[in-house]
């Protein structure tokens, strides 16, 4: 149990740090997009590489931030039954869900993405657009990063659920209020 508790804390702090870091990328996302539009309308200049850089930021933000979002309970659940249920029910759902839904899906995505990303690295793939960014293989690698961070956070969720089921109430999840869309 001590091991599980340590594991939960380790993974949670990892994804929290990653998420907080990635959150700051939203500021360059706003500024670069703003700059691209302003330069084009105001000064008739622009670079495709700059256009692509905000697309990269967008892709990195939601993929790398996915584990962080799970940590903070940000991935939407259909909570007709879940929300009012007991902590034990929630723990069971999270444990079984992680083992039979989340981890298999991420494993599948990882298995199919690995060769896809490796091929891209071997070709040192760049943008297909004129004047686009080189290093597209780095962006593709984000899919693997997503699988790993999300998978680890899933394992943390499962470990947390086991702890709750074993009576460690301090590991119960208090869902935060979310803005929704």
């Amino acid at each position: 149990m001590l091991f599980l508790a340590r594991f939960v804390r380790l993974i949670d702090s990892l994804n929290d740090a990653v998420g907080r870091g990635v959150a700051w990328l939203t500021i360059p996302l706003v500024l670069v997009t703003f700059l691209v539009a302003t330069l084009r309308y105001g000064f008739s200049v622009g670079w495709v590489s700059m256009q692509e850089s905000y697309m990269w930021l967008y892709g990195i933000i939601f993929m790398v931030g996915a584990g962080y979002t799970l940590l903070h309970g940000g991935h939407v659940r259909v909570d007709v039954f879940y929300r009012p249920a007991s902590a034990r029910y929630k723990a069971w759902v999270d444990l079984i869900g992680t083992l039979f839904l989340l981890l298999p899906v991420l494993t599948l995505v990882f298995i199919y993405s690995y060769p896809y990303v490796i091929t891209s690295w071997k070709r040192l793939e760049g943008s297909q657009e004129t004047g686009g960014l080189p290093g597209l293989f780095l962006l593709k690698s984000v899919i693997l990063v997503f699988c790993i961070l999300m998978g680890l956070q899933g394992l943390s969720l499962a470990a947390r659920s086991i702890l709750v089921l074993a009576g460690h109430r301090e590991f119960e999840i208090n869902e935060e209020e979310h803005e929704g869309v």
Binding site: R40, S44, G46
Partner: peptide, 14 residues
């Protein structure tokens, strides 16, 4: 073609 337009001073948009 885009490379050429860029060389001619154009602003290639995607």
């Amino acid at each position: 073609g885009g490379e050429v337009i860029q060389a001619a001073g154009g602003n290639v948009v995607n």
